[in-house]
């Protein structure tokens, strides 16, 4: 059965990369329309490198994504840790409230955030974008990390305390290493959620802070250009290369 699962999961990975392969292939498509493949070109890549305005939106998205994901992961960690380790009152209410941004359609959150920001005289921009993205990434970051903490074996920390470790040392040496993968998972999920958000960004962006998905979404009306396939290709390749390099270095360290 485990072998069946393994094969199934390999297929799932293939499934995840099928459209990415299409994005890569069509980034070299000489035709401007996607239903036809008329030959190879690198034209879209040179277009992309000269499209300063598009690249500026990419930068905005990355800055906002990293900031929002860092804050959401950190707050989510503290929250999940507190809820798992301490008996605080009103946790059900608290968790319900944290879930609201997942439940309410984004346009409602966007509209209401815009009203709140404007009523306190805050001009929309990078800061409001980050705040808006924290709202939608916090539930993800919290739930992911809560899952990990709930599954931790309580005897671990008890054993450590019995051995005379202080709370902080138990946390750092015993608990945190076990939780680290979930922190990574929370960060990655938060980043990509922010990085691909359209609706919240619509209402919280300001002058000069158009994000990449916002720009792409608004250009639907005039048609997506293959230039965007080129951009997608580069983002994926770049991350893969970084991971590969880090992976190789780690293996060397282990072997040495």
């Amino acid at each position: 059965m485990d072998r069946v699962v393994a094969w199934f999961c390999r297929l799932v990975f293939v499934f995840l990369y099928v459209p990415i392969v299409a994005v890569v292939v069509y980034s070299f498509n000489a035709s401007e329309v996607s239903y036809r493949f008329t030959g190879l070109t690198t034209h879209w890549y040179s277009d992309l490198f000269h499209d300063d305005r598009l690249l500026a939106t990419l930068r905005t998205s990355i800055v906002v994504g990293v900031l929002a994901a860092l804050v959401a992961t950190a707050i989510g960690f503290l929250t999940a840790f507190s809820l798992a380790r301490f008996q605080v009152k009103g946790r059900a209410f608290f968790l319900g409230a944290i879930l609201i941004p997942l439940i309410v359609p984004e346009i409602v959150i966007g509209v209401s955030l815009l009203e709140v920001f404007s009523s306190i005289g805050m001009q929309t921009g990078i800061l409001t974008l980050v705040l808006g993205h924290i709202v939608i990434t916090l539930p993800l970051a919290t739930l992911v990390q809560m899952g990990a903490m709930a599954a931790l074996d309580p005897s671990l920390s008890e054993a450590a305390t019995d051995l005379g470790a202080t709370g902080w040392i138990t946390f750092r040496r015993v608990l945190f290493p076990l939780l680290r993968p979930s922190v990574l998972a929370a960060f990655l999920l938060s980043f990509t959620t922010s990085f691909s958000n359209i609706v919240i960004s619509t209402f919280t962006s300001g002058v000069g802070s158009t994000t990449l998905p916002l720009r792409i979404y608004s250009s639907l009306r005039t048609g997506l250009t293959p230039e965007l396939n080129a951009l997608g290709t580069l983002l994926v390749l770049f991350t893969l290369v970084v991971i590969f390099l880090v992976g190789v270095r780690q293996m060397r360290r282990i072997l040495a």
Partner: peptide, 24 residues
């Protein structure tokens, strides 16, 4: 590495956005 990667991307995009829409 992931953080480094994203910040490099950010800087790269930053450097190339010489004119046009700067976030200000």
């Amino acid at each position: 590495a992931g953080l480094a990667a994203t910040s490099v991307l950010a800087l790269g995009a930053c450097g190339s956005s010489s004119s046009g829409s700067t976030a200000s």
